[in-house]
């Protein structure tokens, strides 16, 4: 393995302020084939116990990093302008050949995520380890991203596990 655990674990992957918006939530729900009216109709959402339209369970992955972040209220960049180190690390692994795969994904839901909320997203690399299996070396790179509300309470915690197999 070319990556050094001590240099990698703890590196910030990024931070942003994210506005949970109705259009992207509705479009995302349709794209995961979910026609449930709670994602599209405010009356249906309220009937299901929400204050506003809720986000589907996997919305935070990717979608909440791409939609709803605007320049006027972004926090200081914890990577110091270097950007998410995962891109560089994946590049390093790719040079060794083999395959890079999204191996595992985990969500812990602390409270509902709803349209109209402004969340603070912060991520870091939390683990790096290798396993030998069937004559192949598997390198696992794990990031954790937490979305917090205005009060600083966690709303969703995500763990993303990338596998490099060669």
């Amino acid at each position: 393995m070319s990556l050094n655990r001590d240099e990698v674990v703890g590196l910030p992957t990024g931070a942003s302020t994210v506005h949970v918006e109705r259009g992207p939530v509705s479009k995302f729900a349709r794209s995961v084939t979910d026609p449930n009216p709670v994602y599209h109709d405010l009356a249906a959402a309220r009937e299901a116990g929400f204050d506003s339209i809720p986000a589907p369970p996997t919305f935070t992955f990717s979608a909440a990093s791409h939609w709803g972040a605007f320049p006027e209220d972004q926090p200081e960049d914890p990577t110091g302008g270097a950007g998410n180190p995962m891109g560089r690390l994946m590049g390093d692994l790719r040079k060794e050949g083999g395959l890079i795969l999204h191996g595992e994904q985990e969500f812990v839901y602390h409270k509902p995520m709803q349209v109209g909320e402004t969340l603070r997203r912060e991520g870091k690399i939390v683990d790096l380890y290798t396993k030998e299996a069937k004559g192949k070396t598997m390198t696992f790179l794990v990031t954790e991203t937490v979305f917090k509300d205005d009060a600083g309470d966690p709303v969703v915690t995500e763990r993303f596990n990338l596998i490099h197999r060669r």
């Binding site: 449930n36 369970p57 969500f107």
Partner: peptide
Amino acid sequence: GILGRALTDWAGVGNLTEYRARF
């Protein structure tokens, strides 16, 4: 996401507390 829909159809949206997957 597709499996998430099956979970929320069954348990109700907002009632999932943990969800883990291996691809």
